[in-house]
Design a protein around this nucleic acid. Structure first.
Lengths: 120, 120
DNA sequence: AAATCATTTCGTAATTTTGCGAAATAAAGA
DNA sequence: TCTTTATTTCGCAAAATTACGAAATGATTT
């Protein structure tokens, strides 16, 4: 008698990270910011990306919500950088999911989750 | 004079894979099927997952569309398995994106893309 | 105090996603 | 032939996503 399960927290976690990366603009931004010491302003991005300011702002908000980037207010600019800690955790979790093809429960030593819904 | 770019195909590719993995049910299914020699039937999944048959069917369809799984018709069952080739490619691309933090263009040797929109 | 600047928030619209139950399908067994 | 079985497709509804332009914000410069 198999039973309905609650989806494992790991699956929710991976899905959350994947969702943050499920739009090409967000992939592009994360790729750009994840390079060593790379930060940028919303204005830089809006100049090079084929989307409007408010749309970009929404994408940045989503990445902030997912905990992957953070904005440092520096009026009148906001300097966006990767959130190193969380991006590291997200990478580890995703890596674990992608490469752990034998075990039962995404068995990684380090399963620290990525805090989401952060402020700023 | 910075210019508007077209989003790189790599970003689209990563986003496509991430999108397929952006729902916990799909993450769960892929994790299950990616284990060595693991296949399963829609009925097995619907017994253990907290969603209805038609909803599961849609998730399977999406994973098929993304090229990550395939169904082998075996009446009255349909046996679902991972699409090894494409899953391998997807993993490689994602891995490349996650770990290549220095280069300019997701520079991996092997950039073969995952065919999507497959039949069955 | 008024204008400027980079950015966000708001309001809105179009589209996609997620979910369900009912009906359809297609093969097998009675 | 009529059921049964496993699964999908259809029709629908609710919610989320993506996008835009206009207005708001909040700090700086004139």
């Amino acid at each position: 008698m198999s039973q309905k399960i609650k989806l494992p927290e790991e699956a929710e976690e991976i899905a959350r990270i994947a969702k943050a990366l499920s739009h090409p603009v967000r992939v592009y931004i994360i790729h750009k910011l994840s390079k060593m010491n790379s930060c940028c302003y919303s204005g830089d991005l809006v100049d090079e990306l084929p989307i409007g300011r408010s749309t970009l702002s929404q994408h940045l908000k989503e990445l902030k919500y997912a905990g992957l980037i953070q904005g440092e207010i520096n009026p009148p600019y906001i300097k966006y950088c990767i959130n190193r800690d969380n991006w590291e955790k997200a990478r580890r979790l995703m890596d674990c999911f992608l490469n752990d093809n034998q075990s039962i429960n995404f068995s990684c030593e380090d399963k620290e989750s990525v805090p989401h819904n952060l402020s700023v």
